[in-house]
Simulated assay, not measured.
Amino acid sequence: MTAPEAPRSASVWEVIQLTRTSWRICDAALTETDAARLVAYVDRNDTGHFDVLWLRSPCPTRSRYRDLDEMLADLDAAEAAVPTSRATRPLPIPHFPPSH
């Protein structure tokens, strides 16, 4: 079994091969010293599927993929679903007086 070709993602994800069957996914838009740069670890299992350990949010809800391109497409979709601005105020939490 040979290593798959490098995925063709138009995003900022950096795929770093660690061994023949494992990869690290990083956010190339962040600096090397930013802990949030590390997005996931990926391992190819005995059946040829890719198991993903997500390390930050937002992340896809799945953790098993047929190939790295499919995983990166899901990661792109999860990232796109997040509002671009977090400057909005949070929703207020209702406060009630204690019950007697």
Results as ranks from 00 to 15, higher is better:
78 A>V: 04
59 C>L: 03
37 R>F: 11
99 S>C: 09
47 T>G: 03
64 R>F: 11
19 T>M: 13
88 T>Q: 03
46 D>S: 05
55 L>F: 05
34 D>T: 13
26 C>E: 15
91 L>T: 05
19 T>K: 07
64 R>L: 07
5 E>Q: 03
75 L>K: 03
79 E>G: 11
78 A>I: 12
74 D>P: 05
5 E>I: 06
80 A>Y: 10
61 T>Y: 07
55 L>G: 01
96 F>K: 02
86 R>N: 09
37 R>G: 01
96 F>H: 06
31 T>H: 15
13 W>I: 00
13 W>K: 00
87 A>S: 05
59 C>T: 03
67 D>L: 10
54 W>P: 00
1 M>W: 12
86 R>A: 09
49 H>L: 06
34 D>M: 10
2 T>C: 10
72 L>M: 11
39 V>Y: 01
7 P>N: 02
90 P>T: 12
43 D>C: 08
100 H>R: 02
6 A>M: 07
30 L>P: 08
69 D>M: 07
65 Y>D: 09
34 D>I: 10
19 T>G: 04
41 Y>M: 10
71 M>D: 06
71 M>I: 10
33 T>E: 14
8 R>N: 02
77 A>M: 14
87 A>M: 03
62 R>C: 06
24 R>Y: 15
85 S>D: 05
6 A>N: 03
29 A>I: 14
73 A>T: 06
75 L>S: 07
56 R>K: 04
19 T>R: 10
19 T>W: 11
49 H>T: 08
84 T>P: 04
79 E>D: 08
